[in-house]
Computed example of a mutant assay.
Amino acid sequence: MAINESIVSRRARYPAGPVRRLRSFGQWLVRAPWLIVTSFLLLGVVVSLAIAVWPQQVPWGVYTFLVVASGLFLEPRLLIVVFVGLFLAMATLGVVLGTAKSATLGAQLVTVATMVLMLWLSHARAEAGVVGVGGESMLVDMRDRLRAQGELPTLPPPWGAEVALESAYGDGFAGDFVVANRSTDGRMLEVALVDVSGKGREAGARSLLLSGALGGLLGEMSEGGFLPSANNHLLRLRWSEGFATAVHVALDLETGEFTIGYAGHPAAAQYAAGSGRWRMLAGGRGPLLGVIEGAQFPRESGVIRRGDALVLYSDGVIEARDKALTDGIDRMLGRAESFIRTGFEGLAQRLCDQAAAGLGDDRAVVTIWRG
């Protein structure tokens, strides 16, 4: 109940009345395309009259503005109606004004080119099943949902955890994502870091599709059943060239005992406070997800003691075209060694920022530590 109350109070801070009315008005406009068509045609008439009265003051570019604006709200069939009307108005006005209006032919060519571009864009949106500017809003909502699923649950003292996700070249979508779950009794924490084939926008759709399904598996399967179930799910999807790597860790927050398994993913690193050194957890290796039917995914066991930490990461953190993989691992551990002198907080983001691949690949890091 307390969580629900906090959500309500957070929403109540925003002036919901005007925002909701504006959003409803925009949705109503999209559902009334005849009104949009009529409005743009009337605007075309107004623009034509303005150019006829003030030929030197009003530029031809106003027609281009109407072309772009109408292309954002109309489907191709209705958009052609508006474009035909605007072009006829512009052509007729050019003949009537003659030399009184300069650059007529050039302005018409630019307007026609813009019409072709907007028709192509409108057609692409229609194939995706979205009309108007709602498509971008839908993508933003999907991206935010993917990021929200990657948020780690609150952990009890002395535990701490952070996640850092960076897409290739700062793109809005990435092929790396994280799903996490804490059991209802609060004792078990499960985290899976998944790297879908491809990067940036190429892998964004696959990440959106997989994150919900794999997030639903956490907590519903035994710790040893997560990776086999994820593998079966990808096989059922029958992607022609799609596969994924993953690392899954199940941690007992009371004892610090954990098990970890991999599906073609780089080995995690554990920091031992007693020795002050990092070691790679190379056991529990398994094949890629979505490639081999009935694949086995063994697991490695360990313990996170006071002062210890566990780091999960994707290949973008350690891989570089001109260096061996072992060099990338040594580089990451060297960076981690210098960073932890001030504590584990912020380590995930620092490792992402100084990844071997730079900005050219998706990067993801999850750090879990016991204070």
Results as ranks from 00 to 15, higher is better:
residue 267 A to M: 10
residue 282 A to C: 14
residue 287 P to K: 07
residue 286 G to A: 10
residue 288 L to H: 13
residue 271 Y to A: 05
residue 267 A to E: 15
residue 263 A to H: 09
residue 274 G to T: 00
residue 263 A to P: 11
residue 267 A to N: 11
residue 285 R to P: 02
residue 260 I to C: 14
residue 282 A to R: 15
residue 282 A to K: 15
residue 282 A to P: 12
residue 264 G to P: 12
residue 262 Y to W: 09
residue 282 A to V: 15
residue 280 M to F: 04
residue 279 R to T: 07
residue 281 L to H: 03
residue 262 Y to P: 06
residue 286 G to K: 04
residue 264 G to E: 14
residue 278 W to I: 06
residue 267 A to R: 06
residue 281 L to Y: 07
residue 280 M to L: 14
residue 262 Y to T: 05
residue 261 G to P: 13
residue 265 H to I: 09
residue 273 A to D: 06
residue 260 I to F: 12
residue 275 S to C: 00
residue 276 G to R: 02
residue 266 P to E: 02
residue 273 A to Y: 01
residue 276 G to K: 04
residue 287 P to C: 12
residue 272 A to K: 03
residue 280 M to P: 00
residue 283 G to S: 06
residue 271 Y to W: 15
residue 269 A to I: 02
residue 283 G to K: 02
residue 276 G to H: 08
residue 276 G to E: 10
residue 285 R to S: 11
residue 261 G to W: 14
residue 271 Y to M: 04
residue 277 R to A: 01
residue 269 A to L: 00
residue 265 H to Y: 09
residue 265 H to R: 05
residue 282 A to F: 11
residue 263 A to G: 13
residue 278 W to N: 10
residue 268 A to K: 01
residue 279 R to A: 05
residue 272 A to W: 06
residue 269 A to F: 02
residue 281 L to Q: 06
residue 267 A to H: 13
residue 265 H to C: 08
residue 260 I to K: 06
residue 287 P to E: 15
residue 260 I to N: 08
residue 268 A to G: 01
residue 270 Q to E: 09
residue 277 R to K: 03
residue 282 A to T: 15
residue 262 Y to G: 07
residue 279 R to C: 04
residue 280 M to A: 08
residue 260 I to A: 10
residue 278 W to D: 13
residue 283 G to N: 06
residue 263 A to Q: 09
residue 261 G to I: 10
residue 261 G to T: 08
residue 267 A to C: 13
residue 280 M to K: 00
residue 274 G to E: 05
residue 281 L to V: 13
residue 274 G to H: 00
residue 276 G to F: 09
residue 269 A to S: 06
residue 287 P to I: 14
residue 270 Q to C: 07
residue 271 Y to C: 02
residue 283 G to I: 06
residue 264 G to W: 12
residue 270 Q to M: 09
residue 274 G to D: 03
residue 264 G to A: 13
residue 288 L to V: 14
residue 265 H to E: 11
residue 276 G to W: 07
residue 265 H to D: 11
residue 271 Y to L: 03
residue 288 L to C: 10
residue 274 G to A: 03
residue 283 G to C: 01
residue 288 L to I: 13
residue 287 P to Q: 11
residue 261 G to S: 15
residue 267 A to T: 08
residue 288 L to S: 08
residue 280 M to R: 07
residue 283 G to V: 04
residue 272 A to S: 15
residue 261 G to R: 08
residue 269 A to Q: 00
residue 284 G to P: 09
residue 286 G to P: 13
residue 276 G to N: 12
residue 267 A to I: 10
residue 261 G to Y: 13
residue 259 T to K: 10
residue 266 P to G: 04
residue 271 Y to V: 02
residue 260 I to Q: 11
residue 272 A to F: 05
residue 263 A to K: 05
residue 285 R to Q: 14
residue 274 G to Y: 01
residue 271 Y to D: 05
residue 273 A to G: 00
residue 270 Q to T: 01
residue 259 T to P: 07
residue 266 P to M: 01
residue 288 L to G: 11
residue 260 I to W: 11
residue 279 R to S: 07
residue 269 A to G: 03
residue 277 R to Q: 05
residue 284 G to V: 08
residue 283 G to T: 04
residue 283 G to P: 03
residue 273 A to K: 02
residue 268 A to R: 01
residue 268 A to F: 05
residue 266 P to L: 01
residue 272 A to Q: 14
residue 269 A to E: 04
residue 263 A to N: 11
residue 262 Y to E: 08
residue 273 A to H: 04
residue 281 L to E: 07
